[in-house]
Design a binder for these strands. Structure first.
Lengths: 323, 323
DNA sequence: GTTTTCCCCCAAGGGTCGCTTATGCTCAAT
DNA sequence: ATTGAGCATAAGCGACCCTTGGGGGAAAAC
């Protein structure tokens, strides 16, 4: 079995015309070259070069092998170059999937920094909400999935179980944003930030100037819900507070939620992150009690953390989240 | 440093989709594949594949490397194929240099047998007399040189020295057909046959029906000499017999020599081998005393004896000489 | 739900391989 | 004749590679 090492030696010997010079080129000793050439000749089954006094010449077989060796080693060098570019962040594609409020806040700043530090890397971005984004990740359609989850709601496992029972609108139980039972145990989880839900009330509302509002105080208000997962979380929190919210509107378009609240059609809770990139007009934000937080994380496959471009992207995301 | 072995494993893993199946393909155990892949990933500096439960997928780096690996391994296979063809005598060029009487006797039968046994081999033939043929061999312009030499003439070193002294028409002292001083000590010498010189006299000559003739009995005859080396040998032998031959004609064209003898213009001695391929007409052959023999050998560089096509050619030459 | 099966990782052992150092030989040049 | 360069060989040592045996985890089968 001919190995690349053999061909490197052969090429050096052919180029320099002597074993000693080849050894110097290769950075090893002369006996090493002798042994490699002997091994190669044995693998080849024929003499590859003739020693004529001081000079060494190739035989027909040696010339044939050298002819191939040039191309093979060139290909190998190209492969090493390309892989080194990927390893050295001079190249590398990362497919990133994020939920909308992440795409418009964390991701742009992270990608801008990544691009500035490593111009060769390319990141593609696709929007998808957590259950779907994790599917994409597991299916190999992306390298990083930004997702979020709510901590085990209420006080313990009992509530978590109720939560699990309530999950019957989505796809089976792989909803990807619940607390415990469908964890990402086989994934690499990089926590980015914890995002607090804040209440939204129209200007002039009785709580418009309140600094903090108990959730129960909004029991009689009409509600405007966000994305399905946020809506589920809302219902759950309200039920823990002892009431079932009356949801008049539901949309995953955050500006629309704000517009509806501003028009006086109801109140809402939204992740703080979602508010960062939309123009707030005609509404007031209030802190709600009990505090509800969601954990925003970057998910990837464990092996992919060893891919430099993926690791670098994760680092930038974490950095961007530090604000 | 990426080795071919790594790429073979990578290709097998990519093709089969699992380490175990790749190990079966490669004829080794699964941990061996694991270790090779780990080594390759370390050499590459990035993860190359992701383990997703039961299936394994390539990363971007893995795909890039595999893309190169296909070409590299194909090149390597082509190289091994070509070198195997040369080693297995399904291919291989041999450049053979021979003196004329060898070209027309030993060589044709040897090459015919070689061609029959190994149709892929190609032998090219060039005519050259010994001193020149050995030069060609040493210069790398041929692989095998057929040559001949006369044993140390007369009784010992004294005569050999005289012989050496006489060599002043050719190129220096590398005449390649003398006895001792310019031996082929650095060459591989394959004895083929010992060729006796026979006398040629015209029909009707007083020795035409003699079975054996002493060389001295031809002292007064006009002589027709062959090639320069044969002529030199003739002179030497005659001088040892106590006379200097009167050489009226000299030509290295053996049919011409025979023609001249047949026309009654003189007598000659020719190597038996030279007579084999010419039509003898009008002359008689007689054995001369003392017997003069020349040794016909095949010369090659020592390393070239390990080139299968060269070795096979030498074997066929030896076989052809066994007649 | 439990069991089975498959696949991979890990650790330890043994054998091979590859490189180095040291030595001797041959050839060419001074 | 001597010196220097180049290659071959042998011994020693370290690294590498492969194997065996055991374990864990996830998907498939019962």
């Amino acid at each position: 079995m001919i190995e690349a090492r053999h061909l490197r030696v052969l090429r050096a010997v052919a180029a320099t015309g002597s074993f000693s010079a080849a050894a110097r080129d290769l950075g090893c000793t002369q006996p090493a070259v002798s042994q490699q050439m002997k091994a190669l000749e044995q693998a080849a089954g024929t003499a590859l070069l003739v020693r004529m006094g001081r000079e060494t010449r190739l035989t027909e077989g040696g010339r044939a092998l050298l002819r191939h060796a040039v191309g093979i080693l060139a290909g190998l060098a190209a492969a090493e170059e390309e892989i080194a570019a990927i390893a050295g962040l001079r190249a590398g594609r990362v497919r990133l999937v994020s939920f909308p409020s992440g795409s418009s806040t964390l991701v742009p700043t992270a990608l801008a920094e990544l691009r500035a530090a490593h111009p060769g890397t390319q990141v593609s971005l696709v929007d998808a909400e957590p259950p779907r984004s994790v599917e994409l990740l597991r299916a190999g359609d992306c390298e990083i999935a930004l997702a979020f989850r709510y901590p085990m709601s209420g006080a313990g496992a009992g509530a978590a179980k109720a939560n699990a029972k309530a999950n019957e609108d989505g796809s089976a139980n792989a909803n990807g944003c619940a607390g415990a039972e469908s964890e990402w145990s086989d994934l690499a989880v990089r926590p980015l930030l914890t995002d607090r839900l804040v209440g939204l009330v129209p200007e002039g509302h009785r709580f418009a100037d309140a600094s903090v509002v108990g959730i129960g105080e909004l029991a009689e208000e009409p509600w405007i819900a966000g994305c399905p997962r946020c809506r589920r979380q809302l219902v759950e929190v309200c039920e823990e507070a002892g009431f079932t919210p009356r949801i008049d509107f539901a949309t995953d378009d955050y500006p629309a939620v704000i517009g509806l609240v501003g028009a006086g059609l109801g109140v809402a809770v939204l992740p703080e992150l979602a508010l960062e990139s939309v123009r707030i007009k005609g509404v007031r934000t209030v802190r709600v009690e009990p505090a509800v937080e969601r954990e925003v994380v970057a998910l990837t496959l464990p092996d992919l953390t060893r891919v430099p471009a993926v690791a670098a992207t994760l680092d930038r995301l974490e950095l961007a989240a530090k604000r």
